[in-house]
Structures are given as structure tokens and as C-alpha cells.
Simulated scan of single mutants.
Amino acid sequence: MQVGSDILSHGGRQLVITHDSTATATPMTFSLFLPPQAERGAVPLVTYLSGLTCTHANVTDKGEYRRSCAELGLAFLAPDTSPRGEGVADAEGWDIGLGAGFYIDATEMPWSANYRMWSYVTDELPALVAAEFPALDMGAQAITGHSMGGHGALTVALRHPGRFRSVSAFAPIVAPSQVPWGEKAFSHYLGADRDAWRAHDAVALIEGGARVPALKVDVGGADPFLERELRPELLEAACHNAGQRLELAVRPGYDHSYHFVSTFMADHLAWHAERLR
């Protein structure tokens, strides 16, 4: 690991770290906030998955999570959204390729050479931080994310129900198999077999019997992607039919940006903290 920065904030440490990833065969960068309580004992871990076009830096710079994490005693882990570097496949447009990994393991060339974000965020990165930062209580984990990262948080939690005590999302893509962003990404990364897509579709997973202990979703009422790409009503219907408890809030006037995310970040972190005690 190479520590790019280690900065004091709200009594805790905000680190940015780069390491060579086995999963993606590239260097990967993540940020990790360790609250002041980590100096005295174990602290729960909240993982945050970012959205399209983002890196670890977007939430680190704009997410406004450190004060709440310091008060609540939560560590906050934020990885990048895709592999990067010389020779890594890319494509025209901001919704495929670099910055748009969709938290899946690609099976189609040329993407399959490096786009293994599922393995990275579910296996490699948790093992790395657990080994390097013994203050992290890996038995007390929560996960959240924004947009594409909200999709990632939902699917990771649904497929690892024993790992996370709670999952939340800001403006998630809840049914990527049914919306243009997801259809474009999945057809490139996973091929034409739509049955293979269902393993990375939160609505399909819930319809198939997957469950999580606690689920919270916020969306902005003025989000320009609400009706075409996010489709929260599909998640609401799937949860209702399956008996999966869901706390869904539509926030009037808010858009898709980090102005929205940062406004409700403290609320989400407090909600997770209650379930991580």
C-alpha cells in the first residue's frame, strides 16, 4: 500500500491509499476515514460505493460524512468506481468504461481483462483493510452508495446478507436490467444473456428471494433521472410483494447531485449506527 495522504479531520484520520489490485490487475485507490474512537478500540465500518463518472474523491471531498462518523464512531471506506491505467479498456460516453464499472465482474472482452469490480469490492478490498487496519470491526458492517453505487450497495448486500447489518442508497439504479444505463453496461460487460444480468439487479434479486435485514433509500423528487433510470417504484413494488421492509423517502426539490447526497448523509449514517451497535 502507498498512503497518498493522511490528514487529521474531526479528530480522526482521513487517508487516501493506492495499492496494486489482484482483482483488476491495475493500481486501485480508495479513501478511508478512521474516527477518533479507532485509537481506543474497534469501530464499525460503513462502505460507500460511488456513482457514474466518480472516483473515491467525489464523496471524500463532497460527501460531508466526517463530522457524523467522528461523532458516531464509524469508519468510512470509499473505493473507486472502475479500474484505471494504461491499457484499460474504455469506450465513448461517460456511462460505459472508465468511471462506470457497475460493480460487476465482466465476462466479455475486452472488459473482462480488468473490469472485476465485484471481486474487488466484495473480496479483495475488505480483506485488505481488515488486515491493514485492525481497528475495523468487520463483524459490524453497513453499506451504502449513490446512483450506480446505490445499485452496487443493494446488490452486494442482497448477495451477502450475513455480512451487512444494514444497507442504504441515495438515488440508486434499482433495476438496471430494465433501464438504459444498465442495459448498455450489462450488454457490454456481461453479454446478451439477460439471465446473467439478474445476479446484479436488486429488484430481480428480491423477486428471487434475497433479503437484507434493513433497507433505506432516498431519492430526490427533482432528480432528472428519476423516471427513466432510477425507477424507485419498481423497488417499492418488489419489496412490498416480498415482505422486505423498505424505508423509501422522496425528497421534494432535490436533484441527483452531491448537494442531495450530503444533505441526507448524516441521516443515513445515524440510521446505520443504530443497527451497528
Score class of each variant (00 low, 15 high):
1 M>P: 15
1 M>R: 08
2 Q>I: 11
3 V>P: 07
5 S>G: 07
6 D>P: 05
6 D>T: 08
18 T>N: 08
18 T>E: 12
23 A>H: 09
24 T>L: 13
26 T>D: 13
31 S>N: 01
35 P>A: 06
35 P>Q: 08
38 A>M: 00
38 A>H: 03
41 G>V: 09
42 A>G: 03
42 A>V: 02
43 V>S: 04
44 P>G: 13
47 T>M: 07
48 Y>W: 04
53 T>V: 02
54 C>N: 15
57 A>D: 05
60 T>R: 11
62 K>Q: 15
64 E>H: 10
67 R>M: 07
67 R>L: 13
68 S>K: 01
70 A>R: 05
71 E>P: 02
72 L>V: 14
74 L>I: 08
80 D>V: 10
80 D>R: 00
82 S>C: 01
85 G>T: 14
85 G>E: 13
86 E>K: 13
92 E>Y: 10
93 G>V: 05
93 G>Q: 12
94 W>I: 11
96 I>F: 07
99 G>L: 06
104 I>P: 03
109 M>R: 14
109 M>D: 15
110 P>E: 02
116 R>F: 01
118 W>C: 02
122 T>A: 11
125 L>F: 09
125 L>E: 15
125 L>D: 15
126 P>M: 09
128 L>T: 06
129 V>H: 02
129 V>W: 07
134 P>G: 11
135 A>N: 13
146 H>W: 09
148 M>F: 04
152 G>D: 08
154 L>S: 03
159 R>C: 13
164 F>Y: 05
166 S>E: 13
174 V>S: 14
175 A>D: 15
180 P>C: 05
180 P>L: 10
182 G>N: 05
184 K>H: 08
185 A>C: 01
186 F>V: 07
188 H>M: 01
192 A>M: 04
196 A>W: 05
196 A>C: 07
201 D>W: 02
204 A>I: 10
205 L>F: 00
205 L>K: 12
205 L>W: 00
206 I>V: 09
208 G>K: 10
209 G>K: 01
209 G>C: 03
210 A>W: 11
212 V>T: 11
214 A>P: 04
214 A>Q: 04
217 V>C: 09
220 G>Y: 03
224 P>K: 04
229 E>S: 04
230 L>G: 01
231 R>H: 00
236 E>V: 12
238 A>W: 00
238 A>I: 01
238 A>H: 08
239 C>P: 03
239 C>N: 05
240 H>I: 10
242 A>Q: 04
243 G>E: 07
246 L>F: 03
247 E>K: 13
249 A>I: 12
249 A>F: 07
254 Y>A: 15
258 Y>I: 05
259 H>I: 11
260 F>H: 11
261 V>F: 06
264 F>R: 09
264 F>S: 07
270 A>Q: 15
270 A>D: 12
271 W>F: 07
273 A>D: 10
277 R>Y: 03
